[in-house]
Lab assay of single mutants.
Amino acid sequence: VRQEELAAARAALHDLMTGKRVATVQKDGRRVEFTATSVSDLKKYIAELEVQTGM
Rank of each mutant, 00 (worst) to 15 (best):
R10E: 03
K44M: 10
R30Y: 09
I46V: 05
E4S: 13
E48I: 09
T24C: 13
I46N: 01
M55N: 12
V25S: 02
I46P: 00
L49D: 01
S38G: 08
M55R: 09
V1D: 14
R2G: 11
K27R: 15
G54A: 07
L42Y: 01
A12D: 01
Q26L: 15
F34V: 03
A23L: 02
D15E: 13
A9G: 02
F34S: 01
V1Q: 13
R2D: 09
A11R: 14
T35F: 09
M55G: 12
E48D: 10
R31P: 14
K44P: 00
R30N: 09
I46D: 00
E33V: 10
V51P: 05
V25C: 07
D28Q: 06
T35L: 06
T53H: 10
L49S: 01
V32W: 09
E4Q: 13
T18A: 13
E5H: 08
T18W: 07
L13T: 00
E4M: 15
V1G: 14
A8H: 07
S40M: 10
V25N: 02
S40W: 05
H14Q: 11
R30C: 08
A47K: 11
A12E: 01
L6T: 01
L42G: 00
I46H: 00
A36Q: 14
K20N: 07
T35W: 07
D41N: 06
E33S: 07
S40T: 10
K27T: 06
L42M: 01
V39K: 04
K44W: 06
S38E: 15
V1K: 13
I46K: 00
G54E: 10
R30L: 10
Q26H: 11
V39N: 01
L6Y: 04
V22C: 10
G19E: 03
R10N: 05
V32K: 05
D15A: 12
L16E: 00
K20I: 08
A11Y: 04
E33I: 11
V39H: 03
E5L: 14
Q3G: 10
T35C: 09
R2L: 15
A7E: 10
M55T: 13
E5T: 10
R2Q: 11
A11E: 08
S38A: 07
E50K: 04
V51Y: 14
E33R: 08
M17Y: 06
T53C: 09
M17N: 06
A9N: 01
R2W: 14
E5P: 07
R2H: 12
V22K: 07
L6C: 03
G19V: 02
A36L: 15
D28F: 02
L6A: 02
R10T: 05
A12Q: 02
L16G: 00
H14P: 00
R2C: 11
G19D: 04
A47P: 00
V32A: 04
L49V: 03
D28G: 09
V22N: 06
K44G: 05
L42N: 00
R31S: 12
E48K: 07
L6S: 01
T18N: 14
Y45H: 04
E5F: 07
V25I: 15
E33L: 06
D28R: 04
V39A: 05
S40L: 11
R21L: 15
G19L: 02
R10G: 02
V32L: 11
T24A: 13
R10M: 09
V51L: 14
V32Q: 06
R10S: 03
A23S: 05
T53V: 15
A9S: 03
R30D: 06
D41T: 07
A47Y: 12
V51A: 15
V32S: 03
E5R: 09
D41F: 07
G29C: 04
M17P: 00
D15H: 07
V25H: 02
R2M: 12
E5V: 09
S38K: 06
S40N: 14
Y45R: 03
F34H: 02
E50L: 07
A23T: 08
L6W: 04
V25D: 02
R21G: 10
E33C: 11
G29N: 05
M55P: 10
T24D: 06
L6G: 01
E50F: 05
K27S: 06
H14L: 10
V25T: 04
G29E: 04
G29V: 02
V51C: 12
K44Y: 06
Q26S: 10
T37M: 11
H14Y: 12
D28Y: 03
T53M: 15
V32E: 05
T53Q: 11
R10H: 06
A9D: 00
T53D: 09
V32D: 03
A9Q: 01
V39D: 02
Q26W: 15
T53L: 15
V1N: 14
A8S: 12
D28A: 05
A12G: 03
Q52Y: 10
G19N: 04
R31K: 11
M17F: 05
K43R: 13
L13I: 03
Q26E: 12
T18H: 14
A7K: 13
E48Y: 15
L16I: 08
R2V: 13
L13M: 05
A11T: 08
L49K: 01
A11D: 06
R31L: 15
A9E: 00
M17H: 05
E33W: 07
I46M: 02
V25K: 02
F34K: 01
A7H: 09
E5Y: 10
G19R: 02
A8T: 07
R2K: 14
T53G: 10
S38Q: 15
Q26P: 06
T35H: 06
E50Q: 06
R31A: 14
G29L: 03
T37Q: 14
K20F: 05
R30V: 14
L13Y: 07
S40Q: 14
V51M: 14
R30W: 07
M17R: 04
T53K: 06
A23E: 03
V22H: 07
S38W: 03
V32N: 03
E50S: 06
Y45C: 04
T18L: 09
D28C: 10
E4C: 12
T37H: 12
